[in-house]
Amino acid sequence: MLLPTTTLLLLTLAGVPVQAAPQAATPALPIALERRLAERLGARVGDTLAVGREAGAPEGRAVVTAIYEPAADPSVITRRDLHARFHLPDFTALLGAPDRVDRFGVGLAPGVPPDSAARELNRIAFGFQASPSAEIASESSQTFRVVSRFHDAIAIISVVASAIFLLCIMLLKVEERRRDAAVMRFTGIRRRTIFAALLLEAVLVAALGSAMGVGLALVAGAATNAYYQRFFDTTLIFSAVTPGILRFSVLLSLGLGLGAGALAAWRLVRTRPLVLWGRE
């Protein structure tokens, strides 16, 4: 079934300037304003606005019948467009293009595959093109796929940098214990015990660092969301610290810490005690 023509359409007001208007005798069109637009205009339900296609050339009046909060849409967030909704016939008449629409939403009977319905419509199409909603959604999400690939690439660089940093720090941390290791060797403590002690220390440092990192990530994520939600006046989530991300990060840092600690400890216990003490 076709959606009825009285369905409210979401349309940008670019090119349809809206401004406060004095009362006039002609009947006013009902209009629903997005909250941000209502705030911008200082308009409330019941107010009358002048509307038209060109700036400074009002062609009709509209009375605000509703103020609504639009669904958060990441695809248009940076554009900061302001939206209003008219009844379809009112809007097409205002645009001077009666009975002309941009698109239809088509509801299919149960069991009819959207792909074959779109194919059938396209077979007879002239001047329009039918596409399954899934295909449109896939095309619309192309932008987010690009952003996601960019984030992945940045994440890889960050992980490599963090890994090298962690390796370097763990190596230095263990090497700092050269004299302690020498003393332990002089007092007869076995290499295996020293190795285990150094490894345990590396694991503890890595675990403590991971816990601090998790805390920092949660705080940074919350700050990011708070800032951008306020900046864009939206309820969208900008930073999501998921259990999967936490698991990956903690396991990576523990693994790297363990690996680096083991490598450094192994180098240390293989070195003769007098060399560690600095006397050879």
Partner: peptide, 20 residues
């Protein structure tokens, strides 16, 4: 050499990030 190489690698990656 090992710690210097690691430090250079770390600085190289962070520099690359900074430059980008």
């Amino acid at each position: 050499p090992v710690r210097t190489a690691l430090a250079l690698a770390g600085i190289a990656v962070t520099t690359a990030m900074l430059l980008d």
